[in-house]
Amino acid sequence: MHALGEHLVTQIPKTLSPQDFDLWQMIYPEIQKEGLEAALLRYAPTASLEASIVQSSGEFIASAEAKIIAEVFSRSKILRLTKLLPHLIVPDSGIPIITTNYDRLVEVACEEGGLGVDTMFNGHFAARLEPEHSHWSFCRSARVVNRVPRVRFAKRAKVFKPHGSLDWYHRDGDPVRYAGSLPLPRLIITPGLNKFRSGYESPFDKHRDKGNESIDKAQKFLIIGYGFNDDHLETHLTPRIKSGVGTLIITHTLSEKARTIALSYKNVIALDFQSRTISSGTRVIADGAETDIPEIDLWDLDGLVKGVLSA
């Protein structure tokens, strides 16, 4: 988010009308001081300014994404989530993954790990939002045993993206998924005040509702790099954590909200980078107390897999 904010500060002024430029003059100092989300929460952009932010954000993230995907495709890089997947139990119904990021690296990591990916879109060229068709596309066999239907599905992840995706566009008024880049606005929700309005439009609403449904049914939570700053998810996630659902939070730096949750509930373990006295290590919050583990980066997904799950 910090890198994206810096990119917007330098690129956005080139595209603005005089009216939007005046508003941007108020927003960009806050980005430099408080960060992108705080700035857009303080000053709601106009529709035209938001369109410029979406366009510039999409270009910036797509460029970074393309470099990583090229490394994965050439086998010079393995994504951390790909390394994690063999250590997770994948239920027959699919493992739900909720991501507020726009990039498609979750999808890439899952496919590299041997899982199918259900995004609720069906088709290849201009895939339509068809949750049922997408679901049944993973059916591999069906038979009747003692008059009871038995259906077998491929191992898969169900990826929910309540803030949109780089491959979502509008076509004839309907959301479609297209893997390449088009000279059209992407369907992504920027941080700030306007995300609450946009979050109730299609396809964001379908992904938000399915994501929240998965949160309501979950028996455990693994939360990676999330700051607990999204009301669309918090109305379901935080109450479930407070109800006692076992939760592991790993991130480089815990937000104040995440730290408060970890300290307040004994069903929560949180791991983040311990930088107070040493150059590397992990801060562990468990049972309402903080402990430092030097020289072991368990807060990093790669370090967690190597240091704990593969031990």
Rank of each mutant, 00 (worst) to 15 (best):
Q274A: 15
R140Q: 15
A126C: 10
D209R: 08
F138C: 02
H252K: 12
I249P: 02
P29K: 06
L85Q: 06
A258I: 03
Y265I: 13
A286E: 10
G281L: 03
A179P: 09
V245D: 04
H133I: 08
R171A: 04
P239R: 05
Q25L: 07
T247W: 03
R156I: 01
L301A: 06
K242F: 07
L298P: 01
P149R: 04
S198T: 14
T99Q: 00
L49P: 00
V108C: 02
G227N: 11
A39T: 07
I296G: 00
S264D: 14
S310L: 10
I68T: 09
L88A: 08
E65P: 01
I189A: 11
K210E: 04
A62G: 14
V245T: 11
A289F: 15
P45T: 04
I69Y: 10
S137M: 09
I12S: 03
R240M: 14
G211C: 02
E107G: 08
F160D: 00
V90P: 00
D272S: 13
D209C: 10
N101T: 02
V72W: 05
R283T: 03
T15K: 00
I189T: 07
T235D: 14
S181D: 13
G5A: 08
F160E: 00
K257Q: 03
S275P: 06
A39K: 01
K33W: 13
V268M: 05
Y28N: 11
H252W: 08
G225H: 06
D300Y: 04
E37Y: 08
G199M: 05
S214C: 05
P91I: 13
G113V: 01
E256S: 13
K83H: 07
A66L: 08
E6T: 11
V72I: 14
N122H: 04
S134V: 11
V117W: 09
I89N: 15
R197Q: 15
E71D: 15
L222R: 01
A311Q: 14
E6A: 10
G211H: 02
D297Q: 05
P175C: 10
V108Y: 04
R75W: 08
L248H: 12
T119Q: 00
V54Y: 03
T260I: 15
V159D: 10
D20G: 08
R186W: 10
T282F: 01
V284C: 11
D287T: 04
E6L: 14
V245N: 08
H133S: 08
V308F: 10
R140T: 15
R197W: 10
Y169N: 06
D20E: 10
